[in-house]
Simulated assay, not measured.
Amino acid sequence: MKLGFAGTGALTSAIVIGLKSLKCDPVSIVLSPRNEEIAANLASRYPNVRVASADGTAGAPVPAASGWEEEAFGAGAGP
């Protein structure tokens, strides 16, 4: 399973830590770079947690707010 989080605050941090504390850990997580400090901390603590690029689209046009959804969920995701 692959999960992506748009926000990287206290709630996302708690969810990621909870998921990663499970014995069976089939979840790959992509975090938006919205809060760089929290996202980088989580990515450094867990091997299958990573921070998306700022636009997440490798050069494609990006909606004003973000574009990481495509990186996290595949083409056609996002607004």
Rank of each mutant, 00 (worst) to 15 (best):
D55H: 11
R50P: 00
A54S: 14
A77T: 04
L19E: 06
P61N: 10
E69A: 14
F5H: 03
A10G: 00
A39M: 05
V27C: 08
A54T: 11
M1V: 10
A39S: 14
S28V: 11
K23D: 12
G4T: 04
L22V: 05
A52P: 03
P61W: 04
V27R: 02
C24G: 06
L42I: 06
I38C: 13
K2F: 02
V30T: 15
P47V: 02
S13C: 07
P61V: 09
G9A: 09
K2I: 09
F5A: 05
A14M: 04
V62T: 14
F73D: 01
K2Q: 12
A6Y: 08
A39K: 05
A60Q: 15
A65Q: 13
N48M: 02
L19A: 05
A65I: 11
K2T: 09
M1C: 07
P63S: 11
R45E: 11
E70K: 12
S53E: 13
P33H: 07
L42D: 08
T12F: 00
P61I: 07
I15Q: 02
D55M: 08
E36C: 01
L11G: 00
S44T: 06
P47W: 02
D25R: 11
E36I: 09
V49K: 09
V16F: 08
G76N: 09
V16D: 09
S66G: 14
A10K: 12
T57P: 00
G7R: 04
R34I: 10
A60W: 04
V51P: 04
A39Q: 07
R50K: 15
V49P: 04
I38G: 00
E71T: 08
P47M: 01
G76W: 10
L19G: 05
A14Y: 03
C24H: 14
G59D: 12
G78W: 07
A54G: 03
S13K: 13
A10T: 12
V62H: 06
K2Y: 02
L42A: 08
A10N: 13
K20T: 03
K23P: 12
R34P: 00
A54K: 15
A14T: 05
A43N: 09
E71S: 10
G59H: 10
G76V: 06
L22P: 00
N41S: 15
V51R: 12
F5M: 11
N41F: 03
C24Y: 12
G76S: 08
N35C: 03
F5S: 03
N35W: 04
P47I: 01
A52L: 07
N48A: 10
L42E: 10
A60H: 12
A40P: 00
T12L: 01
A14K: 11
G4A: 03
I17Y: 02
V62N: 07
A14E: 09
E69K: 06
T12E: 02
G67R: 07
K23V: 04
A40W: 00
K2S: 01
A40Q: 15
P47G: 03
W68D: 11
A14N: 10
S32H: 04
A6N: 03
A75N: 08
D25N: 15
S21D: 14
N41C: 05
L19C: 03
V49F: 05
G9Q: 07
S32I: 02
R34C: 05
A14C: 05
G9M: 05
